[in-house]
């Protein structure tokens, strides 16, 4: 039986840091199966988790000093929440892993401890019907596992409460930036070249800075300032940071822009930010699919029309000047 260490070493922290930036995040996949944490016996609890590096690290660190079985499911390096949504952290895989690890021979009880955020993929009654083990949804955060175990394996309301702190949002941002790098590079190059061709290099550079600033405002500032930005709509929140960025940009560049170019900036830049902040809905655990759809049905046409109108104004301003 493989044993796991509940202590994170320097290499684990370095790996976390790299994974946050999207560097080789699939190189840390933990082989699925049953592991011993401490010196568990036939009566020890069985904690089920995913084989994403940070999930596994959080669980084993939380279980330090305990004697627990850890059943790692094959979620292909994806965290519990996303894997449950995709169904890989699911009934099928759980039953398969319970059977293949011969868990019924290892423990005498018939109880599996699952993370609450795994529930969208697992039908507890189906698991019981198919392999005889009952499912207890324990906590949302792995860090609460010791309290749960000490509480006679009973979940308190606090263990069921989601948190989404400033820091929780901050650590999600690097990978968002990395994922957007390709589209950012392509669009900013087009903006730079088109504006430089139309009005010379300084204009091209200004447009480049304006665009990249608007995109980063939407990707970085929108999520960080989330609770303090007005409204419930993510697109609106993004538009507000975009508006702030537009004001900053116009002030920083001396404000010597023509009225047409200024209007264009106010139309285009907040739309760019709004799109990127709207996309952060995918990283949260409180936005519903129907809500995002509603925002998109209304928001995407508004953003599109603003950007097209703004671009036409820029072209028009070129002709008026020219």
């Amino acid at each position: 039986m493989p044993c796991i260490s509940s202590k994170l070493v320097y290499a684990d922290h370095l790996g976390t840091c790299k994974a946050r930036w999207g560097i080789g995040r699939m190189n840390y996949i933990v082989p699925p199966g049953l592991y011993a944490c401490g010196a568990p016996d036939s009566g020890s609890p069985v904690v089920v988790t995913a084989n994403y590096k940070m999930t596994y690290d959080a669980v084993r660190q939380a279980l330090a000093g305990r004697n627990v079985w850890v059943l790692v499911l094959e979620t292909f390096g994806i965290n519990v929440w996303c894997a449950a949504g995709k169904g890989t952290f699911g009934t099928e895989e759980l039953v398969r892993r319970v059977t293949s690890s011969e868990l019924a021979k290892v423990v005498t009880h018939r109880r599996l401890v699952l993370p609450i955020l795994g529930a969208p993929g697992v039908a507890a009654h189906e698991v019981t019907r198919r392999c005889g083990f009952t499912v207890s949804y324990a906590t949302i955060h792995a860090v609460d596992l010791p309290k749960y175990l000490d509480n006679g394996m009973v979940t308190t309301p606090a263990m069921r409460a989601l948190r989404f702190s400033w820091y929780d949002r901050l650590v999600l941002i690097p990978v968002e930036v990395v994922l957007e790098l390709k589209s950012l590079a392509v669009i900013s190059a087009v903006v730079l070249l088109a504006c430089a061709a139309a009005g010379g290099l300084p204009v091209g550079m200004a447009a480049f800075v304006a665009y990249v600033g608007a995109a980063l405002s939407g990707i970085v500032l929108g999520p960080l300032l989330l609770p303090w930005l007005p409204g419930k709509s993510f697109a609106l929140k993004g538009a507000v940071v975009g508006l702030l960025w537009t004001c900053c940009f116009l002030l920083l560049t001396g404000g010597h822009w023509t009225p047409l170019a200024t209007t264009a900036a106010f139309l285009i830049l907040p739309s760019v930010s709004a799109y990127h902040t709207l996309n952060f809905t995918g990283c949260t655990t409180f936005t519903s699919r129907s809500g995002v759809r509603k925002e998109m049905r209304f928001g995407l046409p508004v953003m599109g029309i603003s950007i097209v109108t703004g671009t036409l104004l820029l072209v028009l301003s070129r002709f008026i000047q020219g």
């Binding site: 989601l162 949260t284 519903s288 509603k294």
Partner: peptide
């Protein structure tokens, strides 16, 4: 959760 609320009636 922490005062985060999304759109109503959707």
């Amino acid at each position: 959760m922490d005062g985060f609320r999304y759109l109503n009636n959707v």
